[in-house]
């Protein structure tokens, strides 16, 4: 993908508005304003990314938060999220498997050695049962004995009791994605509702854990729905938004959905930053395919201020060194560990 490096002399009026509203006043763009960003012509994209970068620097700072993620229980999920290779309802080649605790601790140590401050334990489940909760408790204790790193979890939909347990065990952040706009959600998931997702997100916040609530774009949603999603996320005020780009997985209902256009992905990055000036906006899955190396850099200079280092749950990411070296090249320091709980 090529980017025009020069900024346009006269960027569109929405960028002028955004400069005043988001950069100067710290007020995120509305849904209709976000749609204007998503519709900007290619010639205005460098200016949009530049503004998003300024917003990120002004309201978040120059640090980049680095995280590693790991699957403690892979595959065999009873839900039907149409993008997911871990659903047991599709003919996906991903087999069900559990990771043992020594391997998990080893991975936490390796992750911390990259400079990462976050380690997120993920399970492919509708929600955790007692067995999984017990394993998570055991895993948290073993990791805490072995290495200094913040532990996050992503275990699906929670009950209030489970939220309280995780908070009391020191889980400082919980991931539960909205994935897509409310209006598009029924096209993508039929086994649970948007409201159920929101319920878990709100309980997590109310319990004092940081909410990590992400998006997966490029699933066939319209630009209007992409703007809707950014506005719905902004309304939730999550601490972090991981931004995924669809990587069409074999055997899933979305396997034939094409890979999202790189410039549209960059417009989305700018839009999400302009919707949420203070949120940690993390590069998550699919960026390697959608953006490649050049686009990855453009996004980091266009509003992104966090990365998942190394591999994802079932697919491989860029080599950790490639991202860490890029941060050095861009003069972006890695955020240091602050135990928040």
């Amino acid at each position: 993908m090529t980017m025009q490096p020069e900024l346009q002399a006269n960027p569109g009026p929405i960028l002028e508005t955004a400069r005043n509203q988001v950069l100067e006043q710290g007020i995120g763009l509305s849904e209709s304003q976000l749609l204007e960003i998503l519709r900007l012509p290619d010639r205005d994209l460098p200016a949009a990314l530049q503004l998003a970068h300024e917003v990120r620097l002004r309201h978040c700072g120059e640090d980049v938060e680095v995280e590693g993620i790991i699957s403690i229980k892979t595959g065999g999920c009873p839900e039907d999220c149409h993008f997911c290779s871990q659903s047991g309802l599709f003919d996906s080649p991903v087999r069900g498997v559990w990771l043992d605790i020594p391997e998990l601790v080893k991975a936490a140590k390796e992750t911390a050695a990259t400079g990462a401050t976050e380690f997120c334990i993920v399970a492919a489940v509708r929600g955790p049962d007692i067995k999984l909760m017990n394993q998570i408790k055991f895993a948290i204790d073993r990791i805490n004995e072995a290495v200094d790193i913040n532990i996050a979890c992503s275990l699906g939909m929670l009950t209030q009791r489970q939220v309280d347990q995780l908070a009391s065990w020191g889980v400082h952040r919980y991931n539960h994605n909205l994935e897509t706009a409310r209006s598009y959600f029924p096209e993508v998931v039929t086994t649970h509702s948007y409201e159920e997702r929101l319920d878990t997100c709100n309980m997590v916040k109310d319990a004092g854990m940081e909410l990590c609530c992400g998006a997966l774009i490029g699933m066939g949603e319209s630009l209007e729905q992409r703007a809707e999603l950014a506005a719905q996320l902004a309304a939730l005020e999550p601490h972090e938004v991981p931004l995924n780009f669809l990587n069409p997985r074999p055997g899933t209902p979305l396997e034939n959905q094409g890979i999202m256009d790189g410039k549209d992905a960059l417009r989305a990055i700018a839009a999400f930053r302009l919707a949420m000036p203070r949120t940690v906006l993390r590069y998550a899955g699919g960026r390697e395919l959608t953006l490649g190396d050049l686009g990855t850099k453009a996004g980091l200079m266009g509003g992104i201020n966090a990365v998942i280092v190394g591999n994802y749950l079932t697919t491989l990411g860029r080599p950790a060194d490639a991202d860490l070296n890029l941060l050095v090249e861009l003069n972006m320091p890695i955020k240091e560990l602050q135990k928040t709980l």
Binding site: G68, I69, I70, S71, T74, P93, V94, R95, V97, L99, E103, K106, A107, E110, T111, T114, A116, E288, L289, V309, G310, N311, Y312, L313, T314, T315, L316, A320
Partner: peptide, 24 residues
């Protein structure tokens, strides 16, 4: 190059794949 193999190249069995941040 971007994901681990899922099928055994010798017998086509689906393999148990574990991905960690820095390996698989």
């Amino acid at each position: 190059a971007m994901e681990p193999p899922r099928y055994c190249a010798a017998c086509r069995r689906r393999m148990k794949v574990q991905v960690t941040p820095l390996g698989w």
